[in-house]
Design a protein around this nucleic acid. Structure first.
Lengths: 231, 231, 231, 231
DNA sequence: TATGAATGAGGATTCATTCAT
DNA sequence: TATGAATGAATCCTCATTCAT
């Protein structure tokens, strides 16, 4: 609309015009849809989710959804990937250079856990990726994007492990492989929090399990004590 | 209709070829349906699975399914149940009483891995449970069924760990929790083999990773050497 | 809005580059839309044609279409009209007054065939009309439009035939009827070129069939030789 | 409901049981659907036709349609091809061996016209074939079947022409080509009866035009009179 | 008991048209 | 005048479940 603000009356109205710009409006609407979709998708899951309800909750017509997202699957993915971008940066920040390798592993995993606590939904994208057969072919860019993110995180972790091994803090090991193991473990535990069957079987709070698991692995990585091991 | 003459009474019917008894036949048919259902459910998951195909594969009419199972969910439960029972039994057999606790853990996990290799589809059951966000809420009986199976397996593992701890083979630990960790790890690794993104990032063959992960945990469980730890 | 300053009044605005007048611009834009619409309508037919694509190809917003044409049907009519006018004119030009009637018929049909070769899509218009059973009832204005064009062409042909009959070049006949027959034949042959079933059965190149058909009809129109026919 | 009277009492009721057999019932229902579909398709055309209405008119549920026909296109084709099988046989019967070739051509075309009068709808299948882009890929068997029928008819006609040429009744000509021309002409004329634009332009009853067209072609096929032509 | 025909709610998606800016 | 976001009716098709035979 009138791309150039009316500023009718002529007086300057501070930083931002009252009336939202074209693009702004579009962004807001998109967000409204995403919010509604998140609610519905997270409550019902992908397949049972009803786009009618999404539209209704977003306060838009059904057809409007399709002006923002190609189809149901894309909307789902969009819901999942929202907010995803900041993740890797934060994870990197969690690593403080001065700390011992073991402590850095702890920090990383603690960050991971906390991030999950704050953004549970976000993590579902990992699940989504593993469910292509159910939700349909995901757009390649999405797969690529998540894979890349994943790889960066693994790399971060692997570097820490590698440095630990080089410095003698850890026993020698294949750091990429162990990073994978840690990663898998962390994701598995988190995922199990949302899986009803697994959750039902837990007797210790997840956070505690999470820490213990990391500790267990760290202990497994401790360098063999010269005497006792050499025996 | 009236296809099979009543042979109630059970007396021998002489020359006539061995016609299966009423009950027998019913059992066989039920099994045929279960087999067909397993194939389809394991391939497609709960919601996308199509009962038309199940009936066709079983060689019965669709209506017949409902003479054996109340509805789709119950059929699913029956599939899980039938297979779960066999699974738990085999897993139990994998544990040989005479072996060391560590070795028993190795055996168990090796069995798990091999069983997965041989029956990949079967394991999708576990994911089904973890995929509620994607496939929608599963009927309670289904969840209960799998939870029960899962619990039995965890119990098996926890017992081994517990005995190891009691016997001094392992450091003291919460055996149920560690069993959960191992279980999560194993499932996570297997699952990652089928997820395109995760698989892309692996550089070591899964079997190797699997063994290394178990070894890592076992090392983490080793009792603290008196000297170094006691310090 | 207000995008283009009013230059009503029409006076020359000096140095400023030759900006097209209001009306001019409007005419150009209308033409752009018509061109885009022709492409799409001729390729897809009336109902399957998508106005989104028309707008896109024309390089205007979808809403703009409605500033030039009331609705889809009227746009279709306009397309038919624009092209029909050009067609009838060219067909008229193909008739050279000096030639014999038979030769004029040949010319006409040759023109028709060549025009089809060059603008295959254009001819789909005729089929659109004959395809109401498939595409559904067309809006009356559309039918009227095409009927008018068709009538003009038939009239041209009928006049040639009539003059031929009057001049003794052809046997007496109902020239309007024969014009219809020729027209039907020509359209049928052309149409059959695009129909997979019919085309499969042809063994002679269409152009040849076309000429032979005309020749056949012309021979049928030859005046009875006084002797043999008079018997 | 209670459709079939109880035939309690058990006595033999002559040749046919009152209660329709399984297959019978299915055939009847299929027919009901076809009837309803014909009404709707012929009134609205393929694309605008609404399967909801078809189901309603047939007195069945929407889903039932899909038990008899894969999809809309197949139902349409089925409507068109119903009754088609007897056609070629009848056409063959129309040819009486004793008649002159010209007379046989007249007979054939007259039969064709009458058959069309009686079964207008049937002929639409020819149109349908030419509209694949609109109604979607037709099942190959249908295309093949119609092509085959078409070929047989052309062959019949071509044989008559060929014999006529051999016997001196017709001037030498490519009989397959002329058969195609006649066929195209006949179909074009018939089709034009259903096309509103073409129909509006007709001033002579179609039957008359049909006969005249045939006569015109026959005259065009007459052998050249030795004297007058040789000149 | 087995059948399979029938059901009908349910859901994703399209697209001509409107209208506020 | 042009835009393009929004609309929402329209429609094909799926499939778990029922039920008369």
């Amino acid at each position: 609309m009138k791309d150039a603000p009316d500023d009718d009356g002529g007086e300057d109205r501070g930083a931002l015009a009252r009336r939202p710009r074209r693009g702004e409006r579009r962004v807001q609407q998109r967000q409204r849809i995403l919010d509604a979709a998140r609610t519905v998708f997270f409550r019902d899951g992908f397949m049972p989710a009803n786009l009618d309800e999404v539209a209704q909750r977003a306060g838009v017509a059904k057809g409007t959804l399709y002006r923002y997202f190609e189809n149901k699957a894309e909307l789902y993915v969009a819901v999942l990937s929202a907010n995803g971008d900041a993740f890797e940066r934060k994870m990197r920040d969690a690593l403080e250079p001065g700390l011992s390798p073991a402590e850095q592993v702890r920090r990383t995993s603690r960050f991971y856990f906390q991030h999950w606590t704050a953004h549970r939904e976000y993590f579902r994208i990992f699940w989504a990726l593993e469910n292509e057969p159910v939700i349909g072919e995901l757009p390649e860019p999405v797969v690529a994007q998540v894979t890349a993110l994943w790889e960066q995180c693994l790399r971060l972790l692997a570097d820490v492990l590698e440095r630990g091994a080089q410095g003698g803090a850890f026993a020698p090991h294949d750091s990429w492989e162990v990073a994978n193991i840690l990663w898998t473990l962390a994701n598995g535990l988190i995922q199990s929090e949302e899986a009803p069957a697994a959750k039902r079987l837990r007797r210790t709070p997840l956070e505690r399990v999470f820490e213990d698991a990391v500790e267990l692995v760290l202990r497994g990585l401790e360098p063999a004590p010269p005497a006792s091991r050499a025996r």
